[in-house]
Each structure stands twice: as structure tokens, then as C-alpha cells.
Design a binder for these strands. Structure first.
Lengths: 335, 335
DNA sequence: CTGAAAGCGCTTACAG
DNA sequence: CTGAAAGCGCTTACAG
């Protein structure tokens, strides 16, 4: 591929001058500027970003690490990130961890080697390995999921509030008391906070629930299905409502209920975190706490870019975005 | 950040030797290998991929260019790409064009500057600018959408066949004849092929349809809505069925019908290309041609990687993946 | 207004 | 088994 030297030779100037022209530096004779531009075009010149990055010590690239881009929540979040990034001349590399700590670590190290200027991460780990980045001085911003250890900017949803509202709705509006929560893993802040909101609502209404009404699993359909099956087949006091930790779990709940001929919401009320955009637009069924995923991604990216540009921000920022509570049918409203 | 020289100095060897150790080259004294590895670890060394790429003339990075990652079809396709890529030590940069030819061109040029090893693209253009890549010898593989000009590997869905089956189903099973197609733009091969399949089915059954039953628009909900509104409000012979060019258009159709109190499928049958995974799992409503998006992405990526690795493949490959025809309720079955 | 030179951090052909 | 040196393709401080 043609480089700056080829152009220089043909234009009868030094490579330095070519570089200056190509970078729009001031103080160049207009005629040489024109000539260089002309020749660059003729030769179909494409500047080598690698060389530039190596010299300038920045790549204009960031990494986005999430569990699975296929989860509509992350898809939308990713779009928010990409838009903000590209508006600022940055590209983004996507990484899927599938909630695997080892994969996360591997990606983190790889992204470091690739010298990305910063990292956006919805971590499935405890963030122990993040100190690496502090040391190397590459900024890292948390998105969706909180991590205890380090002193990092953080953009999340208000999980506790959403869970609280959802649970309270079941209690206050539908007079339902026997509510179980099917939660994601406790290693994730989202799970812990949602459980907290759920418990707060129960507590405020002085509802005592057996411990085994809090079931810890994964954010997957299969878990929702299995856990619901167990509840519905169990003898003893009948469960009246389920709070699904996320949308995938909710699908599992619905499938299990269907299989057993249990009607939602008539026989069992259901509320969930996260919405399915497309499904809801056609079938407004699930009562859900919908998070502003796009904004979350866009804002987190903005924070990251600020850190990258070295804007002097004294302390760490923590933004908590309120979810929108969408009251639909699965809770028992609008039957 | 520490580099190979720092390690060399501390280990009392040359940078060349450090490089050899780090790259697992054979023929090194075990003791120096150990020493270098040890020191690299102590210094928290992270090899600079930029420098390596510059020297080796490859980045182990590919670009995926689609219109909108937020479209579930592309989301799944993207996951297929990312999985295949990362299994082979490649990372992928995502680009959203929003069906804007200028954006596409800009991304293409940018990716060239970043010296990605190859490009995967669902193009919204006619591919005129692709010759650039031929010249520069960076491989490019078409996915989902065909482009006439160049001699490129290509993995697409069988749009004609899917459209044919869907239309034929409406005709044969439901005895519906007045079927309109709401198509995406004619600049896209998917649109053209779907129209072809639709026409073929009509032709085979000797059904003559007025020209204005073929409506060209965009792959967006709003177009589906507007076009349906016009049909339903129009005087004259009543339309009996709609073939939606894709899932977004189908949503528009449904919304328009609802607004006017037209029942689907009782008053109007509907079939569509592309499915909504999640919606369908809960509400199996839309009769649709579902494409193997993950496979499409994965396979296209595989082709690209082969080209990148320079495997000698004589001629261009063209794979056409059959869609799965999902007969559900919107066509009139299983009412 | 422009050039010569150093340097970003690697890899590798050539020698020994 | 290992080192010195060149080179990948840029940018930029220093001179003039």
C-alpha cells in the first residue's frame, strides 16, 4: 500500500510535509498543500491508523464488554454506545462474555494489548482484575452492573426502585401477598438490588414470606422455567405472584405456567424487569420495569470519552437511571 | 507502559530475544526463556498489538457493517460473526449505517485506514466503492445482501424461495388472491428477490394483481403502517392479504389494522419475512419466513477468515440459506 | 514554510 | 542459541 514516502517522493517534498498536509496543520504553502492532496488522491492513499496510533499513543477505539449482545437490553445499550462513540470519531470493539469470568478476563487483557483507549463493561466478575487498568492508566467505566472495589464512573439502572414498584404494585393494587422472586446470580449487583427492592416492598406491607420464596438462579429462560415448575407443583400454600429477575426468566415462567394450564394473570400474577420492545409493541402483556438502555449506553460512553480526553473531573460519577414501570396485563390489570 | 526493551535490560538479553520468548519461538535456552517470562510477569507486561500489527501487516481485526445492530436479525447475525471471529483470535468492530450510503462509504474508508484484515458487509449501496478493497487486496464478504458488481463471496438467505412459499401458502391453503406486498427499497437485493418470489407464486396460480399492489418503501414500521392505512381506506376491491417485506413492516401492518378495527387474520391475512424470536416464543402469531441469522453470520465470517488466511480457493462461493417457514396464526391457520 | 532525524514498540532476516 | 540492525508508517520537536 502506498505510504507517505511515496507521496513525498512524487510531490518533491519531505514526508514530514506530507504528514502536515494530511493532518491539516496550519502554516503550509497553499500550492504545496494542493499538490500533496492531489497526489494522495491519485495514489489512492489511505493513511495507516496503526502507525499513527503507535506514535500518538491512542487508538480512538474503545471496547464494550457485555454478557451477550443478543439480549435486547444489551443490544440497545450497544447501539447507544456505538452512536456516541462514532460521533466522536471512536470505533468500538464488541465482546461477549456469556457471564463467564474467564472469558471476561481474557477479553480485558486482549483489549489492553490492543491498546483501546478505554473500556465500557457490564462485568460478571467482582472487578478484581480491574486494577490492571488503573495501573496502566486506561479508563474504565461501569455500565448496568456495579462492582465494589474500584473507584470508577458508573451508569446503572435503579434496580431497587424498579423492583420495589413492581412488587408494591402486586401488593397494593392486586392484594397479592405470596410473591416469589426468581433472581439472577448474587454475584451481580442487579440481582442483589432487585431482591432488595422486592424485600423492601414486602417489609413495608408487613408481609412475611418464607425464605424459599427467594430463588437464586441465572438470567436465563431455563431457570425461570424450572423454578416455576417447582413452585407450581409444590404442595402447600399456593404461590400468587412471581417477580421475574429479568425478561428471559419471565419467558420461562410463562412457558411453565402454560404447560401446567396455569393462567397468567388469573391464577398467577407476573411482573418482570426488562421489556421486549417488539413483543410489547404487538402484545402488551408483560408488566415490566423497562430500563433506558440506549441512554445508559450513550451516557456511559460519554463519561468514558471524557476520561479518555483527560477532562479534569474531580471525583467519580455515579448515575442511576430510573426505569419506566409499564403496567400491562400479566400483573392482573386490564384483564 | 513497559515494553520489550525494559524487559530486555532487566533480563540482560536483547530485545530480539525477548520477542522470541514472548512469541514462543523454538530454539531458545530454557533458562533465558524462564527468566524473560518471569520478568515480563513482574513488570506486568502487556504486548503492544499496534506495533506488532504494524510490523506484521495484519491486525487480527475484521469489521462488520450492517444497517442497524438493533434489528434482531442483525443482532443474531452479529453474534454468529463475533463467535466465529473470537474462536480464531480475531476481534470485530461493529458499524451501523442506518441504510445511509454515505455512512457506509465513510465506515468503509475508516476501516481501511484501521487496516482491518477483512470486511463483512450487508451493504445498502450498489457496491461501487468496493473496488477500493480489491485494489488494496483486503478481502470483503457479502452477507445477507447481494451486490452485483464485484466477484465476492456471498452468504445470503433464499429470499425468493421464502417469499414464494409464504405467498403460495396464502393462495393454496387460504384461497386468498388479492395479496399486496409491502417491500423494502429496490436498491436491496433482499427486496427484489422477495418481490420475485411473490410474483412467481401469483403467476403460477394465474393470479393477476394490479400493479399498485406492489408497494415499495423502507424496511421500517412506519412504512408498513402508512401503506396499510392507504390500502384499508381505499375504495374498490378489498385487499385480502399482505406480504410484509420484513418484521418491522409487519408490525406497522398490525398497528394500522388494529387502529381501523380490521382483524388479522379474519379480515386480513398477514405473512412476513423475518421473525421476532422472543415475541414468537410467547405469542406464536406471525406466520413468517425465519432466516438462520446466526449461521449466516458465522459462515460468512468463516469464508472471510479463509480469504484472510490466504487459503487458495479458486472461485467465489455463494451460499444461499433456506429460511424456515413458520406457519402460525396471522395467515389464518390455527384460528 | 519545510526538512532531517528521532522515536512509537514491535519482528525477523542475517550473522555469528 | 542470541544479538545488531533494519524496517513497518507515521508524528513532531528542533532547526533553519
Amino acid at each position: 500500500m502506498t505510504n507517505i514516502y511515496d507521496i513525498a517522493k512524487k510531490a518533491g517534498v519531505s514526508p514530514a510535509t506530507v504528514s502536515r498536509v494530511l493532518n491539516n496543520k496550519p502554516g503550509l504553502k497553499e500550492s504545496t498543500r494542493q499538490k500533496v492532496l492531489q497526489i494522495a488522491k491519485e495514489l489512492n492513499y489511505s493513511p495507516n491508523y496503526l502507525a499513527r496510533s503507535l506514535k500518538k499513543q491512542r487508538t480512538d477505539t474503545i471496547a464494550l464488554i457485555v454478557s451477550d449482545i443478543t439480549n435486547p437490553f444489551f443490544t440497545t445499550l450497544a447501539r447507544g454506545v456505538e452512536d456516541k462513540a462514532s460521533q466522536n470519531g471512536f470505533n468500538v470493539i464488541f465482546c461477549n462474555t456469556d457471564e463467564d469470568i474467564k472469558k471476561e478476563k481474557a477479553y480485558l487483557e486482549l483489549m489492553l494489548q490492543r491498546r483501546v483507549d478505554g473500556i465500557l463493561i457490564a462485568s460478571c466478575s467482582d472487578g478484581k482484575t480491574f486494577s490492571l487498568f488503573r495501573k496502566k492508566n486506561v479508563p474504565l467505566v461501569l455500565v448496568d452492573r456495579r462492582v465494589n472495589k474500584p473507584n470508577l464512573d458508573c451508569v446503572t439502572g435503579d434496580n431497587e426502585e424498579g423492583a420495589y414498584q413492581l412488587t408494591k404494585h402486586l401488593i397494593d393494587t392486586h392484594n397479592i401477598k405470596k410473591i416469589a422472586i426468581l433472581s439472577g446470580p448474587l454475584t451481580l449487583s442487579t440481582s442483589r438490588e432487585r431482591i432488595q427492592g422486592y424485600q423492601k416492598a414486602l417489609y413495608e406491607s408487613s408481609i412475611k414470606i418464607p425464605e424459599n420464596y427467594t430463588v437464586i438462579g441465572t438470567y436465563k429462560e431455563d431457570f425461570g422455567y424450572q423454578a416455576t415448575m417447582e413452585f407450581l407443583k409444590k404442595k402447600g400454600p399456593k404461590i400468587e405472584g412471581i417477580f421475574a429477575g429479568n425478561n428471559f426468566i419471565a419467558i420461562g415462567v410463562i412457558k411453565a405456567a402454560r404447560e401446567l394450564g396455569i393462567r397468567i394473570p388469573e391464577d398467577l400474577a407476573l411482573v418482570t424487569f426488562d421489556d421486549f420492545e417488539f413483543a410489547s409493541s404487538l402484545f402488551p402483556f408483560l408488566t415490566a420495569a423497562k430500563q433506558p438502555a440506549y441512554t445508559m449506553g450513550s451516557l456511559a460512553c460519554e463519561f468514558l470519552l471524557q476520561r479518555i480526553k483527560g477532562e479534569k473531573i474531580k471525583e467519580r460519577r455515579e448515575v442511576v437511571l430510573k426505569p419506566e414501570i409499564l403496567i400491562r396485563r400479566s400483573c392482573g390489570c386490564q384483564r
